[in-house]
Amino acid sequence: MTMTDRPTRETPLVTTAQPEDFFQLLKPRVMSLVVFTAVTGLIVAPGHPNPLLAAIAVLCIAVGAGAAGALNMALEGETDALMRRTRGRPVAAGRVRKNDAMAFGVILSIFSVMLLGMTTNWLAGGLLALTIVYYAGFYTLLLKRRTPQNIVIGGAAGALPPVIGWAAVTGDAPWQAWLLFLIIFLWTPPHSWALALYSAGDYAKAGIPMMPVARGAKSTRLQILIYTLIFVPVAIAPAFLGLGGVVYLAVSVAGGLFFLALAFRLWRSRAGDQPDKAEAVGREAALYDVRAEAKPARNLFAFSILYLMALFSALLVEQLPGLGA
């Protein structure tokens, strides 16, 4: 192999990055889930926030979450370049320089936290700051490469948005807000490990000790089932604790049983035992184009997103007049 054959990603002296590349740094898909759960916390919380200030608060939470994503991409550019799902990201693909992504993330973090604090209260601003530091600092720099429990502990960052939304309205974070946190926190392991089961090769190549890489596919399938057995009752709990009503009960029980069935089927399958489908390159292909034996994992991954959206949608729907909990 000659010097010219070696793939290099030298930092260009002058960037040709477009505004769209910087928008991609914000992880718009993750941001949409963050916005959705934060809006739910904000609307379910008791009180009537000023609609304009509530909209600005949601924007701040979205930008703050996006800033955390930008910092993550800046810090993980070289690792992302090794994985099929992430190699098209702006830093990994060399369209945005690492330092530019870092500066972008830091500036947006400061602006979003300051504006949220000014708009609502400093508990909400502080929780947003904690989310950013936890995700970009604690999870990306420390946890991700050190323990197979990375996404279990790191999942707290993704679970905080409804608490931030709630705190933005009431100025405090009662147990109901933390119940919403717990739902997302317990949802994260089965969701992430289902994906990891058919992306283990990529994670191994990138040196990330995801559960299937560190403990093997069989152990991961068992842990997914155990987490699902804990998660589903917690997901149903709001219906019995005054946070959700009949609609929520129906959605959480029906979806929960299906979630359990998928987890059980995955536990009995051989998903993850074979190497990944190497030819599935690109984000969508890496997520959904899988080998036949890995389909139970893909199905659980896809349904987990739908179930979480359905749970929070049910909470929102019940805020409509006549459907209250």
Partner: peptide, 21 residues
Amino acid sequence: RRNVAIAMGLVGFIVLVFVVT
């Protein structure tokens, strides 16, 4: 294009701070 995007972002931020105040 980046400069235009930065300008729009800054103007947007100023408007938001004004509206909040």
